[in-house]
Simulated scan of single mutants.
Amino acid sequence: MANERSLILFKPDAVQRRLCGELLSRIEKRGLKIVGLKMLQVTKELSAQHYAEHVEKPFYPLLEEFITSGPVVALVVEGPEAISVMRTMMGSTNGRESALGTIRGDFGLSRQMNLIHGSDGPEAAAREIPIYFKAEELIEYETTLAGWVCADDEK
């Protein structure tokens, strides 16, 4: 299994609704390792860099308005198949259509205000992580519980 890293953003609605601790707790309880974590304000420039593929689309101005409307919490998670694990945990983009038990299914009712962003593949993660984190801000370490999360042949 591939040990991967994924960029995760707790979006402004998650911060304003004081859900960051709950979301972080779910990620940690699942067994993913946090290797980078910070709070920041997304600027228009940062938004355009992150969502470069959407800048020319008609919905982009609303996306930019939302993501720059308040602080976000950015983190990098690491673990076996971290990208797909996080995508499953997040649920469908639209909270109304997302399964109960997922982050969006448990806390969301909106397509746009959907609480959390996660890289959608290895290429996206490789592009997104350096937008939010310098290499020296990502910490390499072993957790004392790693052997209890996955068997050696699953890492």
Rank of each mutant, 00 (worst) to 15 (best):
I139L: 12
K155Q: 15
E45R: 09
R96M: 13
Q41A: 13
G36S: 04
L9Y: 09
S6A: 15
A146M: 13
L75H: 07
F10A: 07
E4A: 06
M90I: 15
P80S: 14
L24D: 02
V15Y: 02
T43M: 01
L115S: 09
G105D: 08
R87H: 09
S25Y: 02
H54Q: 10
G108N: 04
S84A: 08
A82K: 08
K57F: 04
L138S: 04
R87N: 10
W148P: 00
L24Y: 07
P71W: 04
G91Y: 07
R87G: 08
R111A: 11
A125M: 07
M86K: 04
R127T: 13
K57G: 01
N3G: 10
L19M: 09
G70Q: 08
A2I: 11
G31K: 00
K11R: 06
H117C: 08
P58Q: 06
G36C: 03
E64S: 11
L100G: 12
A135Y: 08
E28D: 01
N114F: 08
K155D: 14
M90T: 08
V42L: 12
G70R: 04
D106S: 07
P130W: 13
C20M: 00
I103H: 03
L7P: 02
W148N: 12
L145P: 02
L40Q: 11
I27V: 15
A82L: 07
I129A: 02
Y60A: 00
M1V: 12
P12S: 03
F66R: 10
G36W: 03
Q112T: 10
F107I: 07
E137I: 04
K38R: 06
F107G: 06
A135Q: 14
L115W: 10
C150G: 03
M113I: 07
R96A: 12
F59V: 02
D153G: 04
L40T: 05
S47H: 13
E4K: 08
M89L: 12
T93A: 06
T88V: 09
K33Q: 12
D153R: 10
F107S: 06
W148H: 10
T68F: 13
A126L: 12
E140A: 11
R127N: 11
P80E: 13
G36H: 06
P71G: 11
R26Y: 06
E65L: 05
N3C: 12
E123D: 14
K57R: 14
